[in-house]
Design a binder for these strands. Structure first.
Length: 114
DNA sequence: CATCTGACGACCG
DNA sequence: GCGGTCGCCAGAT
């Protein structure tokens, strides 16, 4: 499906950083918002070198169910990301694509509409 | 073609 | 801060 742009952006996420589904949707302007971003990730082809584990829910929470959740946590920690009880410190590890490039708060901003 | 479901997020209590 | 509800869209059954 047309998730290509999504995967591309995900691959751009630097090691040790993470991005939220919402942020992903906002940057790419996905119709349907975060939900769509989640769909894209769910369909992420494995073995393509896509760092899917760097995509988490708003608030830095790992929303994945099942054994993969633990895997994601492990992968993140191995990259130097602090994960506490399936929660990532967004203030520290949230990656911000230059498109939004805010210089103020590190938390995801929600008011981006023209 | 009708329904259900899901890697989400905002809102409300 | 946590849990329940609603809206949204695409795929699966």
């Amino acid at each position: 499906m047309s998730w290509n742009p999504v995967y591309r952006l995900v691959q751009r996420i630097p090691r040790g950083k993470v991005l939220t589904y919402g942020g992903l949707a906002r940057v790419l302007r996905l119709p349907g918002g975060a939900r769509t971003a989640g769909r894209a990730m769910a369909a992420t082809p494995s073995g393509k070198g896509i760092p899917w584990h760097r995509v988490i829910g708003d608030h830095g929470k790992i929303l994945i169910r099942g054994p993969h959740a633990l895997l994601q946590k492990k992968l993140l920690e191995s990259e130097g990301v602090s994960v506490v009880e399936f929660r990532v410190d967004l203030k520290r590890h949230l990656w911000q694509p230059r498109k939004i490039g805010k210089s103020k708060s590190a938390a995801p901003r929600k008011r981006a509409r023209k």
